[in-house]
Design a protein around this nucleic acid. Structure first.
Length: 205
DNA sequence: GGTACGATTGTCT
DNA sequence: GACAATCGTACCT
């Protein structure tokens, strides 16, 4: 990530999302550090995107999404799980990229410990396969909402030198988004690395 | 002040 | 393949 990662992120989520594939997210705690290489993401645009939390304007929950690019947007879902996004776009524009899945490339033991505490991790590929699993493996929660990934203290984002080549990237409709389904309104805003075993495959939507 | 619902996962049949 | 778990947020009265 040589020239201005902040600047690279300060663009529409739809452009940033494919560039995050292959990026490394690292979280360092007293217990150790876990790093994940992203293999699956989804783009969420702001006001024009019915699937986005920011669709109906700024609220207490989504405030971070309207802020500076490169910060982490973390929220609780169904009272059980957390999901994390990387904020994109210029200040005032609420676009973000949801981190859906990745491959644990560092701190695998710690990731296993965290995951087995809340479920069963059968194999390496399952450690961060799915948005909520990824947050558990990394040890992220609401306390990390709004942290800056670029200045990177405990949590950091390492963009790949060069974006993954297009022929390794697949696209498709987003998963589990209501208001985006049904007729013709499904944007191909989900991106993943073709053939990666860590990419979540989904059942019903 | 009350209620409906969700950017999911794990487990059971 | 289906369902329950579980709680903050948004929206309505």
């Amino acid at each position: 990530m040589s020239p201005g990662p902040r600047r690279r992120l300060s663009r529409p989520a739809i452009e940033v999302a494919p560039e995050l594939l292959g990026a490394i997210v690292r979280h360092t705690t007293p217990e150790g550090s876990v790093a994940v290489r992203l293999t699956e993401v989804e783009a969420y645009m702001g006001a024009d995107d019915p699937g986005s939390h920011a669709y109906r304007g700024p609220t207490k929950r989504n405030a971070v999404m309207f802020g500076e690019a490169g910060h982490l947007y973390c929220y609780r879902h169904l009272g059980l799980h957390h999901c994390v996004n990387v904020v994109c776009g210029p200040v005032g524009v609420a676009s973000a990229v949801l981190l859906r899945a990745g491959e644990v490339v560092e701190g695998r033991d710690l990731a296993y410990a965290r995951r087995t505490a809340r479920g069963v991790a059968r194999r390496d590929a399952d450690l961060a396969r799915g948005p909520a699993r990824l947050t558990v493996a990394l040890g992220l929660d609401l306390a990390h909402n709004g942290v800056d990934l670029v200045s990177g203290a405990a949590v950091s984002l390492e963009l790949p030198e060069r974006a993954a080549s297009l022929d390794r990237i697949s696209t498709g409709p987003r998963v589990g988004v209501s208001g985006d389904g049904g007729d013709g309104d499904r944007h191909p805003w989900r991106f993943w690395l073709t053939g990666e075993p860590t990419v979540s495959d989904y059942r019903r939507a």
